[in-house]
Design a protein around this nucleic acid. Structure first.
Lengths: 195, 195
DNA sequence: AAAAAAAGAATGAACGTTCATTTATTCTAT
DNA sequence: ATAGAATAAATGAACGTTCATTCTTTTTTT
């Protein structure tokens, strides 16, 4: 195996150790010593791959955000109706969140905690532009309410994080029925209602 | 001034110091030494009022949750329509979040981070029962969708936290127009649509 | 004077990070 | 093709600092 590949493996082992530790005890639960132990590596080795702890967390954030965005826009086509497009993206997102539990709850932790640099946050947001473009199209077509993207996001995407959270605590099961109801609620909050 | 009053003042100074420190740097930013310094108190004194750090944070959570609930149900009457009642509660909540910025973002940090005991969390939830009762009434009357309370909360209440967050980062202004649009989105997501 | 409250100094443990070395790999010269 | 030199990767121990918490002493209240 090439050196480059081995490096990539180690880097990703470190990221995944951090992911799991942050999820189980917040950012202060992911000490460099623990990360090193879980990744089967010396603490010093972390600093060969990351500048410091902040850099480690930032890079993890970007990595996870890219995975999320990739999944979200998989199979996304523009030459169908806005609602169909949005539905596709919405279900892609919820599938990702269901299948990649740890990644999803890490992202929602990041959204409400000062653990990520504002600069890194903005960088992560860029990966969501196809969604914003779709909304723009929907607004122009009169399909989607002419309100700010923050509102659209808050009501049609953000709620998923809450539901995920509840499911992770064993309080609520996100089966197909609930998912359908959830999508209906999401759409109901942003559609322009002339349907 | 009586000793009891002085005690209450000191306790609340400690809580408010913790609140502000947690908001500015997460839970690990609120070290006991810093909390003591901000509250103008010796570190040892904290332990006269709280068992340990976890207890301090838990009690802060409950305190803030009670304030929030009190504000939420202020002027709440049952002998008006479900929509009017909900509207009242919704605007109460958003007013609280706007006027008590720190409390609000602390609560949303708590929701997405393992910083609060599950037991304490459940205790905090109890204060929201009037809202759940209202939803039940709305469902029975056919006004509100017959879906789980988690869904109702996720789509009609939870999004406020996101918008607050954006406003705090200076990305979005929650003026009257946006608030109205926000309420419309909230109601659109949960109402049974025969209106 | 007795009791309760608060203070500050001190505790060991854990933190993020760096250090001097060792181990593994790659390159060069024969 | 291979021995030896150079480079890169990885290590465990150790750094100073900060952490949550406790202990002893001083101050305040009754």
């Amino acid at each position: 195996m090439g050196q480059l590949q081995k490096s990539k493996i180690k880097r990703s082992a470190l990221l995944s150790a951090t992911l799991s530790l942050v999820n189980n005890g917040g950012i202060q639960g992911a000490s460099m010593a623990k990360v090193a132990k879980v990744a089967n590596v010396s603490p010093a080795t972390i600093y060969l791959y990351f500048e410091n702890k902040q850099d480690l967390v930032n890079q993890l954030y970007l990595d996870v955000k890219v995975s999320f965005a990739t999944a979200a826009f998989e199979g996304y086509e523009q030459n169908i109706t806005v609602k169909k497009s949005f539905e596709r993206i919405w279900y892609n997102m919820s599938s990702f969140k269901l299948e990649h539990n740890e990644e999803a709850s890490f992202l929602s932790q990041c959204d409400n905690t000062p653990m990520i640099d504002e600069k890194t946050r903005q960088e992560g947001l860029l990966h969501m532009t196809p969604l914003f473009d779709l909304w723009l199209r929907g607004i122009n077509e009169g399909i989607i309410k002419d309100i700010s993207h923050y509102l659209l996001y808050a009501y049609s995407i953000y709620p998923m994080a809450f539901l995920m959270n509840m499911q992770n605590r064993g309080l609520c099961e996100l089966n197909d029925k609930v998912l359908k109801e959830s999508f209906e609620a999401a759409w109901g909050s942003i559609c322009a209602k002339q349907e």
